[in-house]
């Protein structure tokens, strides 16, 4: 397992570096938007998750990382792309053959791979959290946003839930990549579903956001929403994760490698 992890860490570091920079860059951009933009984004609670995440309450305990909350979905999409690239490109390049010759225990290989990419995503979200918090601290006084309620604990908790949500988005990318063996197709399907299709489903099924993955993951990242409590989002997201992992492992372990 450790060998598989280390191996993926070496292989994926260049791609992951780009992904981490994108996450941090997006968070920095979002910090400027939420702290300096015309939209007040002051007190008023959390809204439903949308394409750009929830509208943050900048005076809340985790207000320092309001940008992370706002950017949660986009960070999730970056994570989805990273996982999809990690899984699919080995089929696209044919390197999966080399990997399975070196490590024939497929479940071990996949576990190490997923853990390595997960580490990169967590690093990306953590770095985004640090940059977001520093920018929040710097920008809040200029807009007279009260920081009295800000706490380190709440900030860390929000970054943690954002990281978990990002990993769930990533899992969607990994499952799709395992099924399609194409990074481009899996990312397209994943993004189209999570950002567009599920919102369209919400038109015909008003409770879609309470049950389907994008809504649940966004609610988890936001620490719960008005329609999906944090506890409910944890249970549903956990169920989706287990199903996704089961599908991915069964497919990978059983399928012939003809790529």
């Amino acid at each position: 397992m450790i060998r598989s992890y280390t191996s993926e860490w070496i292989r994926f570091r260049k791609t992951a570096r780009v992904g981490i920079l994108v996450m941090v860059g997006l968070t920095a951009l979002m910090s400027v938007m939420v702290f300096l933009g015309d939209e007040g984004m002051g007190p008023g609670g959390r809204g439903h998750g949308g394409p750009l995440g929830s509208a943050p309450d900048l005076t809340a305990a985790d207000g320092a990382v309001g940008a992370i909350i706002a950017a949660a979905t986009v960070i999730g999409v970056v994570s989805l792309a990273l996982f999809a690239l990690s899984v699919a490109r080995d089929f696209e390049f044919g390197t999966i053959r080399n990997l399975l010759v070196a490590e024939p225990r497929r479940a071990t290989l996949l576990t190490g791979k997923l853990l390595a990419v997960s580490t990169y995503v967590v690093i990306g979200v953590a770095a985004s959290g640090i940059v977001g918090a520093l920018l929040g601290l710097a920008l809040a006084p200029g807009r007279d946003i009260s920081t009295a309620a800000w706490t380190v604990g709440a900030t860390v908790a929000t970054v943690t839930t954002t990281a978990i949500a990002a990993l769930l988005y990533g899992l969607v990318g990994a499952v799709l990549a395992m099924l399609t063996r194409s990074a481009a197709i899996s990312i397209t399907i994943g993004v189209a579903y999570l950002l567009i299709l599920e919102n369209l489903l919400g038109i015909v099924w008003t409770e879609a956001g309470e049950w389907l993955p994008a809504g649940v993951f966004s609610a988890l990242a936001a620490g719960g929403t008005a329609s999906v409590s944090f506890e409910r989002s944890v249970v549903l997201a956990g169920a989706y994760a287990l199903i996704g992992l089961a599908v991915m492992y069964v497919v990978f372990v059983r399928r012939d490698v003809t790529d």
């Binding site: 060998r3 598989s4 280390t6 191996s7 993926e8 070496i10 292989r11 260049k14 490109r89 390049f93 044919g94 390197t95 053959r97 080399n98 990997l99 010759v101 070196a102 490590e103 290989l109």
Partner: peptide
Amino acid sequence: GALVESPAFYPKLSGYDNMRSLAALD
């Protein structure tokens, strides 16, 4: 040890890093 069909490596990594990745796995 095996070489299966055409040699497959990560094109953006150096030959050494490709080998390092496989050596780590092995």
